[in-house]
Simulated assay, not measured.
Amino acid sequence: MDDDYETGGGAAEEDLSLPKATVAKLINEMMPPDIVCAKETRDLIAECCVEFIHLISSQANEQCEKEARKTIAGEHVIKALEELGFESYIPEVQEAYDDHLKTTKERIKGSQKKDTGLTPEELEEMQAALFAKARARMHSKDLTAEGAGGEPSASG
């Protein structure tokens, strides 16, 4: 790899890395307990992970551009894995993506209920009632203003 290689974001490649503690934890979880992994090996694995992420991201970005989209979606990543020959990763990635979508929907749905305790339908009904009340108040002010020679009423 060239030292002056630049990524799409303008950061020098050597500036890209993963959290060392996270990499060490993942390695320790994957290795048998009686095997120790040298620091240089952990660093090399982290570099390989960064390169893999860059490869998949670049391919997903190309897929995104083919579809004239501006945001890389999960589907683009899955297509990139397929195009690059990493089909065996797709089921697990698809499962993680589906879990992410489900969690996001639940979080959004939960935040709507958590804040008010009301369903979206109940909130819409309340909003419609408030708009109707505001329109009625506005209409009554207009009538009061017309009766006072066109000047808005200060009471109300």
Rank of each mutant, 00 (worst) to 15 (best):
K39H: 08
E124W: 08
A38M: 02
S58D: 10
I27K: 00
G110N: 12
K141W: 11
I45Q: 03
E13I: 11
G9P: 01
R137M: 04
L143Y: 04
S57R: 01
A21D: 12
T119D: 10
G150C: 09
S58R: 03
I27V: 14
L26W: 05
I35P: 02
L26D: 01
Y5T: 13
V50I: 00
P33N: 07
I27F: 00
E13W: 10
K114T: 06
S88I: 10
C64Q: 01
V36S: 11
H76N: 13
A132D: 10
T41I: 11
A68P: 04
P120Y: 12
S88M: 13
D142P: 03
A12D: 11
T71V: 05
Y89I: 04
D3C: 11
S153F: 03
D142K: 14
G117E: 11
A129H: 10
A12G: 03
G147V: 02
D43C: 12
L118V: 05
K109P: 01
E62T: 11
E47S: 01
V36W: 07
Y5N: 10
L18T: 08
L16S: 03
N28L: 05
A154F: 14
E67C: 00
D15Y: 13
I56R: 04
L16V: 05
G9C: 13
R107M: 09
T41M: 15
E151D: 12
A154D: 15
E122N: 02
E146R: 15
G147Y: 08
T104L: 10
C48W: 04
S88P: 04
F52Q: 04
L123I: 13
P32E: 13
P120V: 13
K39V: 15
F52H: 03
K114I: 11
E6K: 08
R107V: 09
Y5E: 11
E13A: 07
L81V: 05
E82M: 07
Q63I: 09
C64R: 01
E75P: 00
S88D: 14
T7K: 00
Y89A: 07
V36F: 15
A80P: 00
L16A: 00
I27A: 04
A11G: 01
C64K: 01
E13R: 09
R42N: 08
C64V: 00
C48V: 08
G85E: 06
A148E: 13
E146C: 06
S111N: 11
D15I: 15
T103D: 14
G117Q: 07
K39R: 11
D99W: 04
I78T: 06
K25E: 05
M126D: 03
Q94M: 14
E62A: 10
D4I: 13
P120K: 05
H54A: 10
Y97L: 14
S17F: 05
Y97R: 06
E92N: 14
I108P: 08
G149Q: 02
A60M: 02
A11L: 14
H54W: 09
K20W: 07
G150Y: 05
